[in-house]
């Protein structure tokens, strides 16, 4: 009982403070304060981040030198394969305008607009994976906007905005849920993160094998259709299982993101519904 006597007032004050913060957060009172704080401390953040991030990356890579060498060999093979595919696609692309013209199709592509943003921090607490980027509501960023890698793969969604910065929930976050499909098939499922940040393709039924490409399905109108997400690297389960346990390797290494593209032209249906 002695500890309650000694620390009772302080513990009570802390619980009260926590309640005040919880209410203030719900009421949105903390948001402007947080925005000012992030703006004021951004020079310190840049300094600390620029020193610690490369050190952390170096130490991590040093411990994984063998797996990185193996990965490098595999990537060289993939590059060669992809270069061949690019050559083929370039030939195909040259024919598309001609074919479109012949069919009378209006070219709607090219209307997408993006805002490039630098990654400032990554909050990788278990079950959550959130990055903070240096573009906010002042730059036209809104909650629900889709975030892509510089190569166009899906990275995540904007979940909170401040005047000069935003929080982006990555697809490796357990709270993230992306309706997806296996490219070229009718197999649909749900891309989710996990505690260890591996990305799973849940609720998938059908003949899935390693190497299959997973893309957004556009169902739910939260993401544009056809955005590349990753490659199937592991499939567990038998044909008798209702759902297979499918693991995806995202095209982009989410832990090493430095620059992302926020798609400002896409208006997600979910946000429109929530606003109503």
């Amino acid at each position: 009982m002695l500890i309650f006597q000694r620390y009772a007032y302080w513990a009570g004050a802390m619980v009260g403070l926590a309640m005040v913060f919880a209410v203030a957060s719900q009421a949105g009172v903390l948001n402007p304060v947080q925005g000012v704080f992030l703006r004021v401390t951004s020079p310190i953040e840049s300094g600390v981040g620029s020193v610690l991030r490369p050190v952390g990356a170096f130490v991590t890579d040093a411990g994984r030198i063998r797996s990185l060498q193996q990965e490098n060999r595999e990537l060289r093979l993939q590059v060669e394969d992809l270069q061949n595919q690019v050559a083929q696609l370039q030939q195909d692309a040259a024919e598309i305008p001609e074919l479109r013209q012949a069919l009378g199709i209006i070219d709607e592509a090219g209307g997408d607009t993006f805002e490039a943003a630098s990654v400032l921090t990554r909050d990788a607490f278990p079950f959550s994976d959130v990055i903070r980027v240096n573009k906010g509501s002042n730059d036209g960023i809104r909650v629900g906007m889709v975030v892509r890698s510089t190569q166009g793969s899906l990275v995540g969604t904007v979940t909170e905005t401040f005047p000069s910065q935003s929080l982006v929930r990555l697809i490796s976050d357990s709270r993230s849920s992306v309706n997806a499909e296996i490219a070229g098939t009718a197999i649909e499922g749900n891309v989710r993160g996990s505690a260890t940040k591996t990305v799973k393709f849940d609720l998938a039924q059908g003949n899935i094998s390693t190497g299959d490409q997973v893309i957004t399905s556009g169902v739910g109108d939260n993401y544009p259709r056809g955005l590349p997400i990753g490659t199937v690297v592991e499939v567990e389960g038998t044909p008798q299982d209702l759902y297979l346990d499918v693991t995806i390797e995202p095209h982009v290494r989410l832990s090493r993101l430095t620059t992302v593209l926020i798609e400002t032209s896409f208006d997600p249906g979910r946000q429109m519904l929530e606003q109503q």
């Binding site: 309650f4 620390y7 926590a18 992030l38």
Partner: peptide
């Protein structure tokens, strides 16, 4: 403020340290 976590939850999360250490 610098992460996606709530200050309220963080206070509750760290709260037991002091009374426990004293006990």
């Amino acid at each position: 403020f610098v992460s996606d976590r709530s200050p309220a939850v963080l206070i509750i999360a760290l709260l037991p340290l002091l009374p426990l250490a004293y006990w």
